[in-house]
């Protein structure tokens, strides 16, 4: 059985005339909860389609390289000096890019000097390009991810050491 918005409207009309404020319907395909707000008399609904998807076999040639492999953030720095380095963390989860466009030079390399507002990379999340700023002054000491790698939120992307060092 297919269940449509029109069906919900019809159920609502029935319920409107009745004294019930809540209806819960569960089938093998879906769960539906309808609730009436006592004050306003308005209805809200919560639907959950529970039927499992029927997956056909995959298309064989669909495997053509996604490129964006997920990676684990690098281990904690062992070098005690590194304790003084500033970490640049991902403010969002997404795909990390080191350069403004494919084929272009990376924003920074090991040894690059950066200011607080220097753009050091891009994280693409939900089709939006988000600039990553150094947020510290100094020299890039370590870069923890490669271009196009997936990064979790708060992953350490790179470390900056104070210039005096």
């Amino acid at each position: 059985m297919k269940f449509t918005n029109e069906d919900v409207q019809e159920i609502l009309q029935l319920l409107d005339a009745a004294k019930y404020d809540e209806l819960y319907l569960e089938t093998a395909r879906f769960k539906l909860t309808l609730r009436r707000n006592r004050k306003s008399g308005e209805w809200s609904q919560e639907t959950q389609v529970v039927v499992a998807p029927k997956i056909l076999r995959s298309v064989p040639l669909a495997d053509s390289g996604s490129g964006a492999e997920s990676a684990v953030a690098s281990a904690e720095p062992a070098d005690p000096r590194k304790a003084r380095w500033t970490e640049v963390r991902a403010h969002l989860p997404g795909t990390f890019y080191r350069a403004p466009k494919p084929g272009a030079l990376p924003y920074i390399e090991i040894g690059s000097s950066v200011e607080e507002n220097t753009v050091v990379g891009i994280i693409e999340t939900m089709k939006l390009m988000n600039a990553v700023h150094a947020q510290a002054r100094g020299e890039i000491a370590e870069i923890c991810f490669d271009n196009t790698q997936f990064v979790e939120k708060d992953a350490v992307l790179m470390r900056i050491k104070p210039e005096a060092e």
Binding site: V49, V51, P53, K54, I55, L56, R57, S58, V59, A62, D63, S64, G65, S66, G67, A68, T95
Partner: peptide, 15 residues
């Protein structure tokens, strides 16, 4: 909801 589903590749849209 679909009668069937077929996988067309990795999560990345380009794939």
């Amino acid at each position: 909801l679909a009668e069937s589903t077929i996988c067309i590749g990795a999560a990345n849209s380009s794939a």
